[in-house]
């Protein structure tokens, strides 16, 4: 079986159309996951111990179960109990909630990572609670979070093909439709793979660069020549 360039160019517009959905879903899903994650992170730190531990178990449960099953859950079960959502809304909700279980940990670790001494120094300088957050904690905590959150955005992007299973026609669904109509798998599936590679690899490299710049307190020794 050989690569057919004419066919590849012919199906390109359709795939790009699907890609728009993929990108849209990743972006909206990311925003949602960060908002929910931030709320969970704050809740686990400042709500009462009961709420905090309930949130802790919920996060662990969501993290311990597959996104796909959660998608099915949102898609099939919510209507059963009278909640009707469009497939895209249900899909985004599942993506956002699933990934919030990861982002909430990033927020929590980021805040906990600020040295205790910084809180004490702020108190010694008589800064108000708001000033402490505004001028000390947030500026110190946020930069190292950026690459960690970015990694989850890239992961989410790569998991969006699951949305095709709840009838959302993103790029992978487009590719499968094209493949089934034309009985040709090589070009559409390979092209989707290339799409993902073209977006993921540069993002991963950029994030790696940020990670090294804002290393979260991990002191790595210079190269250990073991071999």
């Amino acid at each position: 079986m050989s690569w057919d360039w004419a066919f590849a160019f012919q199906i390109l517009p359709k795939l790009v159309e699907g890609l728009k959905f993929t990108v849209l879903a990743s972006l909206l899903g990311s925003v949602l996951s960060m908002l929910i994650g931030l709320a969970i992170g704050i809740g686990r730190r400042w709500a009462g111990p009961t709420v905090a531990s309930v949130l802790g178990y919920a996060v662990e449960f969501i993290r311990g179960t597959p996104l796909l099953v959660q998608l099915y859950f949102a898609f099939y079960i919510l209507p059963d109990i009278g909640i009707y959502l469009s497939p895209l809304t249900a899909g985004l909700l599942a993506l956002g909630i699933h990934y919030s279980s990861y982002t909430s940990e990033v927020f929590r670790a980021g805040i906990d990572n600020v040295d205790r001494g910084q809180w004490e120094a702020a108190k010694a300088l008589n800064l108000s609670h708001f000033q402490t957050w505004r001028y000390v904690i947030v500026p110190e905590a946020v930069p190292p979070m950026v690459p960690a959150l970015g990694n989850y955005v890239v992961s989410m992007f790569k998991e969006t093909p699951l949305l095709s299973l709840v009838t959302i026609v993103e790029v992978m669904a487009q590719a499968r439709i094209i493949a089934n109509i034309n009985y040709r798998y090589l070009e559409p599936i390979t092209m989707v793979g290339v799409f993902f590679l073209v977006v993921s690899v540069p993002s991963a490299m950029a994030l790696h660069f940020l990670e090294r710049r804002y290393a979260l307190g991990n002191r790595q020794s210079s190269h250990i020549a073991v071999f």
């Binding site: 093909p161 590679l197 993921s200």
Partner: peptide, 13 residues
């Protein structure tokens, strides 16, 4: 390569 392409796509491929 394996981290950059979606697992879903790899499975199909």
């Amino acid at each position: 390569f394996f981290r950059g392409t979606s697992m879903y796509v790899q499975l199909f491929w």
